[in-house]
């Protein structure tokens, strides 16, 4: 046990789960969505979590993203045991440690791109000048310096998703968690977004990508396949030529 304790404190480990389990009670039935997943993801990794519907990948992702708490098992995120935290403590962990990119972008439609990117900083209690500076920096990073005052309805899908990426990065999170980030985008735009992710990863950003598309997962460096709530396969991608 002592050895594993040290391992958990290892700075190189971003995600570590031990026997992570989630059961849902639906009427008389108990759905065992995730059963006993042990997984370690190190800093700087780019991992694709794959699996068909019902494989438990959404449930697993929600737990990894601190949106949900496990029925059993333990989860350390960036050295902190988070599986036992309260809702509000989880909110703070999400705010500090995780950047989300969703399939449906989930931007606030009435707010400008800049305000959308500032949102996590508002909940982090960052002052307005600093907020603006950091949000502008991230929007520039994703190539939207000239679209800062546009609102989501005035932007294309690709632009919206890039705003979402900028928002995910603005708090300098330990983990970028992307849930089907290309699900609502055409193939060209998808490639752009994935190229962006690869660049981010090359600069040291740890990324966990949840997808069911093999060619999207191919952009990651490691694939974890789930089936029936268990890890079925866990392997490193062959280094491939990026198409775009």
């Amino acid at each position: 046990m002592k050895a594993s304790d040290e391992e958990r404190r290892n700075d190189a480990v971003i995600i570590r789960t031990e026997g992570l389990t989630k059961h849902y009670v639906l009427g008389a039935e108990t759905v065992r969505a995730v059963r006993q997943i042990d997984l370690t993801i190190e800093r700087g990794e780019f991992v694709a979590i794959m699996g068909p519907s019902g494989s438990g990948k959404s449930t697993f992702m929600n737990m990894i993203g601190c949106l949900d708490t496990p029925t059993a098992g333990k989860y350390w995120l960036n050295g902190q045991l988070v599986s036992d935290l309260s809702d509000d403590q989880l909110a703070r962990v999400r705010n500090r440690e995780i950047g989300f990119v969703f399939q449906t972008f989930n931007l606030l439609p009435r707010a400008t791109a800049l305000h959308n990117v500032e949102l996590p900083l508002i909940y982090a209690g960052v002052g307005s000048k600093e907020r603006r500076r950091r949000a502008e920096e991230k929007l520039e990073l994703v190539g939207l310096a000239d679209r800062m005052d546009h609102k989501p309805p005035e932007m294309s899908g690709g632009q919206r998703q890039r705003v979402a990426v900028a928002r995910a990065l603005v708090n300098e999170p330990a983990l970028l968690l992307a849930d089907e980030p290309t699900g609502n985008l055409d193939s060209v735009t998808s490639e752009e977004i994935m190229a962006q992710m690869e660049t981010l990863n090359e600069n040291g950003q740890t990324i966990v990508l949840v997808t069911h598309e093999h060619d999207i997962a191919a952009h990651a460096r490691r694939q974890v396949h789930l089936k029936d709530g268990l890890v079925e396969q866990d392997f490193l991608n062959e280094p491939v030529e990026t198409s775009a």
Binding site: G65, D87, D88, A91, F100, N106, L119, P120, Y123, R167
Partner: peptide, 11 residues
């Protein structure tokens, strides 16, 4: 939901 995901507490 978005606000909560981004770190808004209940309060």
């Amino acid at each position: 939901g978005v606000r909560k995901a981004l770190g808004a507490t209940k309060r």
